[in-house]
Design a protein around this nucleic acid. Structure first.
Length: 429
DNA sequence: TGGGGCTCT
DNA sequence: AGAGCCC
């Protein structure tokens, strides 16, 4: 019996979502691009086989698209979000506890099963998610989240496991897996830590698991100590409640091209501020301050670099787009300098508080309260219109239809499952 | 050559 | 505030 936690991870998730509705993409090298069609963030097995790495810029793939029939799609987050919810619903039917971790990964609890039952249970999950949603998944079960992650990788990459891997602590299988897993593939170990660990002669997950966690803590951090313990089979990483309101809300975007135009940047900031305020209201919070940043292009060392930021506090916690917009504009004015070519701009709302637990001002009067209620209704109406008619249907200030920061998405598929006008048709012949 | 969010120091 | 991590 193992104190089990499972990780269900969707295979090539975005590509798999696209294939559910376009079966002709089966068997072909398919990639999905990041926002703005910038770089590859999901790859089919066929695209991986062509040697295309995660994060490859789209412009480097033009030849492959022409010569090898590679299909590159813009990302369609509405579709992926909806498919993710479907996967979660199936898991909730099959498992006691489901904790979404990311759009394509869910942790599950496997309490109360024998090893044999666990194996069957994992098989059932593997089979039914595919059957009911069309999305292929791999299932890893182990004593801790970190080990479940490793088990999942094995389920995916070792053909013998065929998509399901149940790892018993201390078993020869488990030890063998740790020994052949490079540290960079361990959850929580990024490239900086890989370099530093290598200096200590540590290269594999087994090497880290063999260390005294106390020593790891003193040389690195409590985070890596936890990772070491988890590799040893001791659970010590809690799940964040994914339903908890965010502590910060950010909206940022790269410009389609470099720009130093103040007016253009201002328009971008205005749009990001309004979008952030919308997200703020959606999670029923208010913000006490607005953070604005600009960045020049790091990949152009030949150009002058300048990446300033500024925080402007709001008079009182608010979710009203107008003071937020005003604060963002002030912040921008404080940091903007001409003679730099900017690449990206963003707005972050910080110091968030629960809208329902707001400290009422001592100076509150019936008049001010009435004003507040009017503003609330105005914002609610704004949000409803934008939700119903499409993002940015109604905005404060003048619209800017051809601005440099608008999302590039040359090749986005229909939102098959979330927009009536984009429903798939089935034609009988 | 993405965008968004978290924790730790 | 900055570094580092995650997807």
């Amino acid at each position: 019996m193992i104190g089990p936690v499972g990780l269900v991870d969707c295979n090539n998730f975005y590509v798999s979502c696209e294939r559910v509705f376009q079966p002709r993409l089966e068997g072909r090298p398919v990639g999905v691009l990041s926002n703005n069609d910038g770089c590859v963030i999901a790859r089919s097995a066929e695209l991986k086989a062509l040697g295309v790495e995660m994060g490859t810029p789209a412009f480097e793939l033009r030849d492959l698209v022409r010569r090898q029939g590679v299909v590159l799609l813009s990302s369609n987050y509405e579709l992926y979000g909806d498919m993710s919810a479907r996967v979660r619903e199936v898991l909730e039917e099959l498992c006691a506890g489901v904790e979404p971790y990311s759009i394509d990964e869910m942790f599950i609890h496997g309490d109360g099963f024998s090893r044999r039952q666990l194996q069957d249970h994992a098989q059932e999950i593997h089979r039914k998610v595919r059957r009911y949603t069309g999305i292929p998944v791999c299932v890893g079960l182990a004593a801790t989240r970190t080990l479940a992650k490793l088990a999942n990788r094995a389920a995916k990459s070792v053909p013998g496991y065929a998509g399901v891997c149940v790892l018993s602590p201390g078993s020869p299988d488990a030890q063998a897996l740790l020994e052949k897993t490079p540290l960079g593939d361990v959850w929580g170990v990024g490239h900086r830590l890989v370099e530093r660990l290598a200096l200590m002669g540590l290269h594999t997950a087994a090497d880290l698991a063999a260390q005294d966690p106390k020593r790891i803590r003193s040389h690195f951090s409590v985070t890596l100590e936890r990772t070491a313990r988890e590799l040893q089979g001791t659970p010590c990483i809690e799940m964040n409640d994914t339903n908890r309101p965010r502590d910060r809300i950010m909206t940022s975007r790269s410009f389609g091209r470099l720009t130093s135009n103040q007016d253009e940047i201002h328009q971008a900031i205005r749009q990001h501020a309004q979008r952030s305020a919308e997200k703020l209201r959606a999670q029923d919070s208010k913000a006490r301050a607005v953070y604005v940043f600009l960045k020049t292009n790091r990949h152009r060392p030949d150009l002058a670099q300048y990446s300033p930021s500024a925080i402007v506090e709001l008079d009182e916690p608010t979710d009203d787009s107008r003071p937020i917009l005003h604060a963002a504009t002030q912040a921008l004015q404080a940091i903007y300098r001409p003679n730099y070519l900017f690449m990206k701009a963003g707005v972050m709302l910080i110091d968030l508080v629960d809208a329902n637990r707001q400290q009422l001002s001592l100076l509150d009067t019936p008049q001010r309260q009435a004003d507040r209620e009017r503003n609330d209704r105005l914002m609610a109406t704004l949000d409803q219109l934008n939700q119903k008619m499409g993002r940015d249907t109604v905005t404060l200030g003048r619209p800017s239809p051809k601005a440099a920061w608008h999302l590039r998405c040359a090749n986005r598929t229909p939102r098959w499952t979330t927009q009536w006008r984009e429903l798939p048709y089935v034609t009988a012949r």
